[in-house]
């Protein structure tokens, strides 16, 4: 059974006349890593908010269809309940950290759930360790770099033991090295702890190879879903105007994908492919 199921989802914000999402269908298996991309304003952020029930529970608006996460129909459960199944990481870490120390930040979720104190403490320890930031516990979010802040945000969500993490352009405001470090953390969580990932990202060259599947949203519709290599090598993806990774462009320009039947996403896989093929 899929862990996330979106069924003919359409959504219009209150006061708006144009729907932001139109008939979106997607199911995600447990443990999958989904890369969601698409041009600005295509509805990615809105879709993220639908996944943890902020839409429609807090936003109102016209909501049609169904979103089921970990067995919960989002319209039938309050956000705080869904939060224990889906964690949502935002674009700007500055606005998602509101406590004065990292430890309190991570404790905030489990405290809200009124878990026994020992359990809260245990979850704080575990989450900090999972993200590799135990050494930052006494810092104030103000003192941290953007990458560290984003890791704190991730740890703060993990403390509620969600099976699914949804990340809305978590690296947009980070420098490349911090971005890479955050992405590696996500990959590790997915591979080692089996957390289902739904990652919104523009910088496809950095993430395409991490994902099991790639989905492209365009003007509120899910237009392409499939293996990253199938999606990124398709002519439709090129036409929509997402930033196709250079390796894909080189491979396509030379027709290597057609000749070998392989679709590399990284420089090293293309180089390996050429090496093997040459001999």
């Amino acid at each position: 059974m899929p862990i996330v199921e979106i069924r003919s989802l359409s959504y219009t914000y209150p006061g708006s006349t144009k729907p932001t999402l139109t008939n979106v269908n997607l199911s995600v298996e447990e443990g999958e890593f989904i890369l969601l991309t698409g041009p600005s304003g295509c509805g990615k952020t809105t879709l993220c908010r639908c996944l943890n029930g902020l839409i429609p529970n807090s936003y109102g608006g016209e909501f049609n269809g169904q979103v089921i996460v970990d067995g919960l129909v989002t319209t039938e459960h309050p956000v705080y309940e869904i939060a224990q199944h889906v964690g949502l990481v935002f674009q700007n870490p500055e606005n998602e950290l509101f406590c004065t120390s990292v430890e309190r930040e991570v404790a905030f979720g489990p405290e809200n759930l009124a878990l026994p104190r020992e359990e809260v403490r245990k979850r704080v320890e575990e989450s900090l360790a999972m993200v590799g930031i135990s050494h930052l516990r006494d810092k104030s979010p103000e003192e941290l770099s953007g990458g560290e802040q984003q890791k704190v945000a991730i740890a703060a969500l993990l403390a509620m033991k969600p099976k699914i993490l949804v990340l809305d352009e978590p690296t947009a405001n980070l420098d490349p090295a911090s971005a890479q470090s955050v992405l590696n953390t996500l990959l590790k969580l997915n591979e080692e702890s089996g957390v289902t990932m739904i990652l919104v990202e523009h910088r496809l060259e950095m993430v395409a190879h991490m994902a099991h599947r790639c989905a492209i949203l365009n003007e509120g519709r899910l237009v392409l879903v499939g293996k990253p290599e199938d999606v990124l090598y398709s002519d439709e993806a090129e036409a929509i105007g997402i930033g196709i990774p250079k390796v894909v462009q080189v491979t396509k320009a030379l027709g290597i994908n057609k000749m070998t039947g392989k679709c590399p996403l990284t420089s090293w896989s293309l180089a390996d492919l050429l090496r093997v093929w040459k001999n």
């Binding site: 420098d175 490349p176 090295a177 390796v247 990284t266 420089s267 090293w268 293309l270 180089a271």
Partner: peptide
């Protein structure tokens, strides 16, 4: 400088 090289440069190196 803690910069990540452009993908074409990575490719140049790998090749």
């Amino acid at each position: 400088a803690s910069l990540i090289p452009p993908q074409l440069v990575e490719l140049s190196w790998d090749l």
